[in-house]
Design a protein around this nucleic acid. Structure first.
Lengths: 127, 127
DNA sequence: TTCAATGGTCACGTTGTCGTGACCATGTCA
DNA sequence: TGACATGGTCACGACAACGTGACCATTGAA
């Protein structure tokens, strides 16, 4: 405990839990990674292969964030070459439940949205 | 089996409905606007007052996107000064149902996430 | 000796998101 | 005449997200 932090800055907390959550899983890869891990534990390169078009950089960054927020655990086995396993925590697993509802909604209504966009665009071009 | 669709081309269209949906409502304001409209129709400036810290620019942009995707309707009354009303469509209303589940999850587990972040940060600083 | 495999990190540049402030048209009120 | 209210648009800049490619340490195999 070397220094005392400036607690005055802490006054500004998180005004909205859902915003905090959306900021994390609203990005490009988080949800995809969580769903890829749903069937079971995977190693780093296995995740890369499963997802296919993600770069090392983004996978590494996103996994770190998910671990930080407690959605997954990272286990390093100090073998050679190293083995690292990523697993959903109970928190991550519980998150996927409401999320699946949203995924189902998206599957059901996606056509409607695409149609709405087409109709809107057609109207704009009528100028 | 009259026509076989071009499955190869379909791959590049919408790879994932949920991604398409998250790209829209994962932004800063969309969800907040939808929830603000949930109790009923509001005018542009009324929305600004309700939300409080949104700029004209962002409100205008986000409303346009939501209208484009069919979540809300925009009705212009050519009076003076002009009156514009924004209302949730059935699609927008149906979207809020699974979304409320996610909001509830966020409310319930937000503390856990914040705690996980604090624990992670504490471990990092132990270096 | 050099290569491959694992699981990353770092520097860099590009793109996208977001906010600020200026500006616009119109008719009414003072 | 000028200000005000409504519902915007536009140009600009700051900042974050994202992707690319280079690099790193280790050890066993060729």
């Amino acid at each position: 405990m070397a220094t005392i932090p400036d607690d005055e800055e802490m006054v500004f907390e998180q005004p909205c839990p859902i915003r905090d959550v959306l900021d994390r899983i609203g990005d490009q890869w988080s949800l995809l990674i969580l769903e890829t891990l749903a069937p079971g534990t995977l190693r780093f390169n296995a995740l890369m292969r499963e997802i296919g078009d993600i770069s090392k950089q983004m996978l590494s960054r996103t996994l770190k964030q998910l671990e930080q927020d407690g959605f997954i655990t990272r286990t390093l086995y100090p073998e050679v070459p190293p083995r690292v396993e990523y697993t959903l925590t109970p928190l991550g697993r519980s998150f996927l439940e409401p999320m699946q509802q949203l995924v189902a909604w998206a599957d059901t209504h996606h056509r409607t949205i695409v149609a709405a966009r087409a109709r809107y665009q057609a109207l704009q071009e009528q100028t």
